[in-house]
Protein backbone atom coordinates (compact mmCIF):
# COMPACT_ATOMS: atom_id res chain seq x y z
CA UNK A 1 0.00 0.00 0.00
CA UNK A 2 2.97 2.30 0.09
CA UNK A 3 2.59 3.19 -3.54
CA UNK A 4 -1.04 3.23 -4.60
CA UNK A 5 -1.61 1.50 -7.88
CA UNK A 6 -4.15 3.93 -9.33
CA UNK A 7 -5.10 1.67 -12.23
CA UNK A 8 -6.08 -1.14 -9.91
CA UNK A 9 -8.08 1.11 -7.62
CA UNK A 10 -9.86 2.87 -10.45
CA UNK A 11 -10.64 -0.49 -12.03
CA UNK A 12 -12.07 -2.00 -8.85
CA UNK A 13 -14.00 1.18 -8.02
CA UNK A 14 -15.52 1.46 -11.49
CA UNK A 15 -16.47 -2.23 -11.52
CA UNK A 16 -18.16 -2.00 -8.14
CA UNK A 17 -19.99 1.15 -9.22
CA UNK A 18 -21.20 -0.55 -12.38
CA UNK A 19 -22.45 -3.55 -10.43
CA UNK A 20 -24.25 -1.27 -7.98
CA UNK A 21 -25.87 0.52 -10.92
CA UNK A 22 -27.06 -2.72 -12.51
CA UNK A 23 -28.23 -4.40 -9.33
CA UNK A 24 -29.69 -1.55 -7.37
CA UNK A 25 -29.60 2.01 -8.72
CA UNK A 26 -31.10 1.50 -12.18
CA UNK A 27 -34.02 -0.70 -11.03
CA UNK A 28 -34.71 1.79 -8.23
CA UNK A 29 -34.20 5.15 -9.89
CA UNK A 30 -35.22 4.58 -13.51
CA UNK A 31 -38.97 4.26 -13.87
CA UNK A 32 -39.98 1.97 -16.72
CA UNK A 33 -43.57 2.19 -17.97
CA UNK A 34 -45.68 -0.94 -17.92
CA UNK A 35 -45.66 -1.36 -21.65
CA UNK A 36 -42.67 -0.48 -23.78
CA UNK A 37 -43.18 -0.91 -27.47
CA UNK A 38 -39.61 -1.68 -28.44
CA UNK A 39 -36.97 -2.82 -26.02
CA UNK A 40 -34.45 -0.30 -27.41
CA UNK A 41 -36.79 2.53 -26.44
CA UNK A 42 -37.08 1.56 -22.81
CA UNK A 43 -35.93 4.36 -20.48
CA UNK A 44 -33.42 2.00 -18.86
CA UNK A 45 -31.93 0.82 -22.16
CA UNK A 46 -29.13 3.41 -22.38
CA UNK A 47 -28.28 3.47 -18.68
CA UNK A 48 -27.99 -0.32 -18.69
CA UNK A 49 -25.79 -0.40 -21.76
CA UNK A 50 -23.57 2.23 -20.18
CA UNK A 51 -23.44 0.30 -16.92
CA UNK A 52 -22.34 -2.82 -18.79
CA UNK A 53 -19.77 -0.79 -20.66
CA UNK A 54 -18.47 0.59 -17.36
CA UNK A 55 -18.30 -2.93 -15.95
CA UNK A 56 -16.30 -4.12 -18.92
CA UNK A 57 -13.96 -1.12 -18.75
CA UNK A 58 -13.61 -1.50 -14.99
CA UNK A 59 -12.59 -5.14 -15.33
CA UNK A 60 -10.16 -4.25 -18.11
CA UNK A 61 -8.66 -1.56 -15.90
CA UNK A 62 -8.40 -3.96 -12.96
CA UNK A 63 -6.62 -6.54 -15.10
CA UNK A 64 -4.32 -3.84 -16.40
CA UNK A 65 -3.63 -2.81 -12.80
CA UNK A 66 -2.79 -6.38 -11.79
CA UNK A 67 -0.70 -7.44 -14.75
CA UNK A 68 0.92 -4.21 -15.88
CA UNK A 69 1.59 -2.81 -12.45
CA UNK A 70 4.26 -0.42 -13.57
CA UNK A 71 3.92 2.60 -11.25
CA UNK A 72 2.54 5.56 -13.12
CA UNK A 73 5.69 7.52 -12.65
CA UNK A 74 3.65 10.58 -11.80
CA UNK A 75 4.50 12.61 -8.75
CA UNK A 76 2.63 11.47 -5.70
CA UNK A 77 0.71 14.04 -3.67
CA UNK A 78 1.48 14.64 -0.02
CA UNK A 79 0.28 12.06 2.48
CA UNK A 80 -3.20 12.16 3.94
CA UNK A 81 -2.53 14.38 6.93
CA UNK A 82 -0.26 16.92 5.32
CA UNK A 83 -1.00 20.61 5.46
CA UNK A 84 -2.19 20.40 1.87
CA UNK A 85 -4.81 17.80 2.67
CA UNK A 86 -6.03 19.87 5.59
CA UNK A 87 -6.36 22.85 3.29
CA UNK A 88 -8.37 20.71 0.85
CA UNK A 89 -10.68 19.81 3.71
CA UNK A 90 -10.92 23.53 4.44
CA UNK A 91 -11.96 24.14 0.84
CA UNK A 92 -14.68 21.53 1.29
CA UNK A 93 -15.85 23.47 4.31
CA UNK A 94 -15.84 26.73 2.35
CA UNK A 95 -17.90 25.21 -0.49
CA UNK A 96 -20.44 23.73 1.91
CA UNK A 97 -20.66 26.89 4.01
CA UNK A 98 -20.96 29.05 0.90
CA UNK A 99 -23.86 27.01 -0.40
CA UNK A 100 -25.66 26.91 2.95
CA UNK A 101 -25.20 30.62 3.63
CA UNK A 102 -26.67 31.84 0.34
CA UNK A 103 -30.33 31.46 1.46
CA UNK A 104 -29.52 33.02 4.85
CA UNK A 105 -27.22 35.93 4.08
CA UNK A 106 -27.89 36.30 0.38
CA UNK A 107 -25.40 35.63 -2.38
CA UNK A 108 -23.48 38.87 -1.96
CA UNK A 109 -22.52 38.55 1.71
CA UNK A 110 -22.00 34.80 1.45
CA UNK A 111 -19.58 35.52 -1.41
CA UNK A 112 -17.68 38.09 0.65
CA UNK A 113 -17.19 35.52 3.41
CA UNK A 114 -16.32 32.71 1.01
CA UNK A 115 -13.75 34.87 -0.74
CA UNK A 116 -12.20 35.85 2.57
CA UNK A 117 -12.10 32.27 3.81
CA UNK A 118 -10.52 31.03 0.61
CA UNK A 119 -7.91 33.78 0.56
CA UNK A 120 -7.10 32.88 4.17
CA UNK A 121 -6.71 29.20 3.28
CA UNK A 122 -4.39 30.20 0.45
CA UNK A 123 -2.50 32.39 2.98
CA UNK A 124 -2.40 35.15 0.43
CA UNK A 125 0.39 37.68 0.85
CA UNK A 126 -1.77 40.35 -0.72
CA UNK A 127 -4.04 40.86 2.27
CA UNK A 128 -5.23 44.35 1.44
CA UNK A 129 -5.93 43.54 -2.19
CA UNK A 130 -7.75 40.38 -1.17
CA UNK A 131 -9.89 42.28 1.31
CA UNK A 132 -10.79 44.90 -1.28
CA UNK A 133 -11.67 42.33 -3.92
CA UNK A 134 -13.61 40.27 -1.38
CA UNK A 135 -15.97 43.16 -0.78
CA UNK A 136 -16.02 44.85 -4.17
CA UNK A 137 -16.29 41.88 -6.52
CA UNK A 138 -19.56 40.44 -5.11
CA UNK A 139 -21.06 43.92 -5.00
CA UNK A 140 -20.09 44.74 -8.58
CA UNK A 141 -21.35 41.39 -9.80
CA UNK A 142 -24.58 41.95 -7.90
CA UNK A 143 -25.06 45.34 -9.49
CA UNK A 144 -24.31 43.97 -12.92
CA UNK A 145 -26.53 40.92 -12.79
CA UNK A 146 -29.47 42.49 -10.98
CA UNK A 147 -29.56 45.90 -12.58
CA UNK A 148 -28.14 45.41 -16.05
CA UNK A 149 -28.62 41.74 -16.92
CA UNK A 150 -32.00 41.43 -15.20
CA UNK A 151 -31.02 38.39 -13.15
CA UNK A 152 -32.27 38.90 -9.59
CA UNK A 153 -29.40 37.70 -7.41
CA UNK A 154 -30.82 36.08 -4.27
CA UNK A 155 -30.93 38.38 -1.26
CA UNK A 156 -30.67 37.28 2.32
CA UNK A 157 -32.85 37.91 5.31
CA UNK A 158 -30.62 40.56 6.88
CA UNK A 159 -28.88 43.31 4.93
CA UNK A 160 -30.76 43.87 1.68
CA UNK A 161 -29.25 45.74 -1.23
CA UNK A 162 -31.17 48.07 -3.54
Amino acid sequence: MTRLNTDLWVGVGVSLFAVALLVYVIPQAVVVPRSVRYIVLSPDFWPEILAYALLLLGVLMTLKGIFFTAPDGQAEGPSLFSAGSLRVLGIGGVFAGYYLLIPVLGMVWASVLAYGALAAIFRSRHRLAALLVAILLPLILYAFFTHIAGVPIPQGQYVRLP
Binding site: Y98, M107, S111, A114, Y115, G116, L118, A119, F122, R123, S124, R125, H126, A129, A130, V133, A134, L137, P138, L141, Y142, F145, I153
Partner: peptide, 15 residues
Protein backbone atom coordinates in the same frame (compact mmCIF):
# COMPACT_ATOMS: atom_id res chain seq x y z
CA UNK B 1 -1.61 36.50 -8.25
CA UNK B 2 -3.45 33.23 -7.93
CA UNK B 3 -4.22 33.60 -4.25
CA UNK B 4 -6.27 36.67 -5.11
CA UNK B 5 -7.54 35.45 -8.47
CA UNK B 6 -8.85 32.00 -7.55
CA UNK B 7 -11.24 33.07 -4.77
CA UNK B 8 -12.57 35.59 -7.27
CA UNK B 9 -13.02 32.83 -9.83
CA UNK B 10 -15.05 30.91 -7.26
CA UNK B 11 -17.33 33.88 -6.64
CA UNK B 12 -17.67 34.51 -10.37
CA UNK B 13 -18.55 30.86 -10.99
CA UNK B 14 -21.23 30.92 -8.30
CA UNK B 15 -22.85 34.06 -9.72
Amino acid sequence: PKSVLLPGVLVLCVY
